[in-house]
């Protein structure tokens, strides 16, 4: 289909625009709020993040997290390689996870990097649609 037709039809369809199309900004605002919420949640649960790292690095530390008992009994099974059978509150055990908003920044940066790499890759590998047919 030619783009001309697309445009004309797209123009017609503005009359039957769906709720989503009319409220894109609401959706985006919702996403932003969710993002901020996930950061606040990390602040809220910060003691857990810290404690998890302490346990992972085998440093003797007093457990002062009695309030967060819903996760304190969590335990991950991981075969014979288990560290002294210590209970782990989170699957991974690297100091960098303790950094505030690490995964947030990482997610954002990785996404942008992947998209830019893809755009760059186009320069090398993009050909006409009927490349193999010609």
């Amino acid at each position: 289909m030619k783009t001309k037709d697309d445009n004309s039809k797209g123009g017609n369809s503005s009359s039957d625009a769906s709720w989503l199309e009319r409220n894109v900004n609401v959706v985006i605002a919702g996403l932003v709020i969710a993002c901020i919420g996930s950061l606040i949640a990390q602040l809220w649960w910060a003691p857990l993040f810290a404690e998890k790292h302490v346990e992972a690095s085998h440093v003797e530390a007093s457990h002062d997290d009695g309030t967060h008992d819903e996760t304190s009994h969590d335990e991950h099974a991981h075969g014979e390689s288990s560290h002294d059978g210590a209970s782990h509150l989170h699957p991974a055990e690297f100091a960098v996870e303790e950094v505030f908003g690490f995964e947030a920044m990482f997610g954002f940066a990785a996404f942008v990097a992947v998209v830019f790499l893809g755009t760059g890759l186009r320069l090398v590998i993009m050909r006409d649609e009927d490349y193999y047919d010609s």
């Binding site: 969710a34 996930s38 990390q42 857990l48 996760t71 989170h90 699957p91």
Partner: peptide, 25 residues
């Protein structure tokens, strides 16, 4: 006895995915 739903894990995964979506926007 793996437990996927720990507070930290859920929050970190949500951060990763939500901010990736934000990057798209």
């Amino acid at each position: 006895h793996y437990e996927p739903y720990t507070a930290a894990h859920v929050i970190m995964q949500l951060q990763l995915l939500l901010f990736a979506a934000l990057a798209f926007v």
